[in-house]
Amino acid sequence: MTLELVVVLLTVGLGLATPAFLLIRRLQRTTWQDSARVATLVSKLRRPVGSAMVVYAGGWLCASLADFVFSSPRPGWEGWPLVWFVAAALAAAYGALRPAKPSVDGVLAFAAIASLTLVAANFRGTPDQPSRLVGSPASAAPTSSAAPAATAPPEALSAAKADGAEGLEALLAKYPGDPSVVRTTMIAHAASVDGLERAMELVEQLHAIDPRALLDPVVEQTIVEAAKGPGPGRARALSILAERMGSRGPDLLWEMARGKSAAKADAKKILARPDVQANGTPALQIAMALEDAKGCAAKAALLDRVKQSGDERAVAILEPLTRGSSRGCGLLGLGACPPACPKEAKKMRDVVAQVKQRLEGD
C-alpha cells in the first residue's frame, strides 16, 4: 500500500470519526429510548443503507469477476476499497434524498456497478503493486526454488555397492532419478537368476529417466541375458527389446532368433509383429523380406533394395543361393550341383559383391 493512500484513508477516517461519534451520542439521547422513534429511524435508514450495501458489494463482486475474466499481466489497484466506499456513500445519499422509485433505483444501481466494473477492468494499476482482487498472484502460496539433489554423492554410491543389492535399494529409494544409482542397482540384481525380474524393472525405470541409457553395452547385455534366461524376467526383457530400444531392439531379436537359446522361438514370434518390424533399420527390413520371400524369383525381385540398404545379413541369405557344389548330384551323387537359384545366380552374385564393397567402404 502506497504512503499517499494511507494518508488519504487516515484523513477520511479521522474526518468521519468526530461527526459519527456526535451522531451516535445524539441518537442515544433522543431516539434510542423511544421505540416508535427507533422504528421510524429504521424505516428511513433502510433505503440508503440498502443502496450503499448493494453498490459496495455488487461493485466488489463484479470487479472480482472482471479481474478473473479480463485477466491482465498487471495486478489490481489497491485504491479500489476507497472507490467502493465513496460509491457506497453516494448511493446512500441518493437513497436518503430521493423518493422511493424501485424501477429507477434498480437502473441507477446497475449503471453504477457496471460503470465501476468497466473502470476496474481497464485500470489495473502498475506492475509493482500487488493485487487485492480474487485470483491475484499475490495471494498464491510462495514456492521454493530449491530442489532436492537428484544425484547421489559418489561416496554414498560406493558405500551402497559394498552392501550389495539391499544397500543399493536403500540408496535408490533416496535418489530414484539418479541414472547411476538405477544402473548400478540393476547390475547387482542381474547377477542372480532370481534378481532378473527386478533388474528388468530397473531397466524400465532407467528408460524413463534416459532412453539412451539402454544402449549402454552393459545394460544391453543384461537385457539380452534376461531375455535368454528362465523365469518371468524373460518376458519383460523381450518386451523391452521390442518396444523400448528403438532400432537396436529388433537387431538383437534377429540375432536371438538365429541362436540356440530358449528364447529363439519367442524372438521369431516378436519379430513377426508389424510394429516391431517398423522399428527395424532398412538393412534389417530387407533381410527379413529376403527371408520371407518364397522362391528365387521372389528374392531376385528384392535385389534393388538389397543393393541400396542390405548388409551382411542379406549377404548371408543370398550368397548360398549363388553357389553350387562339386559333387552331390547326378549318378551316384558324383556330379556337380548347380546353384539353388541358377537363373538368378549371376545377378545375385553381382549384388552381393556391390554390398560387400559398400560395407568395406563404410
Score class of each variant (00 low, 15 high):
Met1Asn: 06
Val6Thr: 07
Val8Lys: 11
Leu14Trp: 11
Gly15Glu: 03
Gly15His: 04
Gly15Cys: 03
Thr18Gln: 09
Pro19Glu: 04
Leu23Cys: 09
Arg26Met: 15
Leu27Asp: 14
Ser35Arg: 14
Ala36Gln: 14
Arg37Asn: 12
Thr40Leu: 13
Ser43Gln: 14
Gly50Met: 12
Ala52Arg: 07
Tyr56Ile: 05
Gly59Pro: 10
Trp60Lys: 08
Trp60His: 08
Leu65Pro: 10
Ala66Ser: 12
Phe68Asp: 08
Ser71Tyr: 12
Arg74Asn: 08
Pro75Trp: 07
Trp77Val: 01
Trp77Ala: 05
Pro81Thr: 00
Trp84Ala: 00
Phe85Ile: 00
Ala88Pro: 01
Ala89Gln: 03
Ala91Asp: 02
Tyr94Pro: 01
Tyr94Arg: 11
Gly95Asn: 02
Pro99Glu: 02
Pro102Ser: 07
Ser103Lys: 13
Val104Asn: 05
Asp105Met: 08
Ala111Asp: 03
Ala112Glu: 03
Ile113Phe: 10
Ala114His: 09
Leu118Asn: 06
Asn122Ala: 10
Arg124Ala: 04
Thr126Asn: 10
Gln129Ile: 02
Ser136Tyr: 13
Ala141Glu: 15
Thr143Asp: 13
Ser145Gly: 15
Pro148Val: 05
Ala159Tyr: 06
Gly164Phe: 03
Glu169Ile: 01
Ala170Phe: 06
Ala170His: 12
Ala173Tyr: 11
Lys174Phe: 06
Lys174Trp: 09
Tyr175Met: 09
Tyr175Leu: 10
Asp178Tyr: 12
Pro179Arg: 08
Val181Ser: 05
Thr185Met: 01
Thr185Val: 00
Met186Tyr: 04
Ile187Trp: 04
Asp194Gln: 13
Glu197Leu: 13
Glu204Tyr: 14
Gln205Lys: 15
Pro211Leu: 07
Leu214Asp: 10
Asp216His: 09
Asp216Ala: 06
Val218Ala: 11
Val218Pro: 05
Glu220Ala: 10
Gln221Asn: 14
Ile223Lys: 07
Val224Cys: 06
Val224Met: 09
Glu225His: 12
Glu225Asp: 10
Glu225Pro: 04
Lys228Cys: 03
Pro232Ile: 00
Ala235Gly: 15
Leu238Cys: 13
Leu241Lys: 15
Leu241Phe: 14
Met245Pro: 11
Gly246Ile: 08
Gly246Tyr: 13
Ser247Val: 09
Pro250Glu: 13
Asp251Lys: 05
Leu252Cys: 12
Leu253Ser: 14
Trp254Lys: 11
Ala262Pro: 06
Ala265His: 13
Ala267His: 11
Ile270Arg: 12
Ala272Asp: 15
Ala272Leu: 09
Arg273Gly: 10
Arg273Pro: 07
Gln277Glu: 09
Gln277Cys: 01
Met288Gln: 15
Ala289Phe: 08
Gly295Gln: 06
Gly295Lys: 10
Ala298Cys: 05
Ala301Asn: 14
Leu302Ser: 02
Leu303Val: 06
Leu303Ile: 05
Asp304Leu: 09
Val306Pro: 01
Asp311Trp: 02
Arg313Ala: 01
Val315Pro: 01
Ile317Phe: 03
Glu319Gln: 07
Thr322Met: 00
Arg323Thr: 03
Arg323Glu: 04
Gly324Arg: 02
Ser325Phe: 06
Ser326Pro: 05
Gly328Asn: 04
Gly333Arg: 05
Cys337Lys: 08
Cys337Arg: 05
Ala340Asp: 12
Lys346Asn: 01
Lys347Asp: 14
Met348Lys: 02
Val355Leu: 07
Glu360Asp: 12
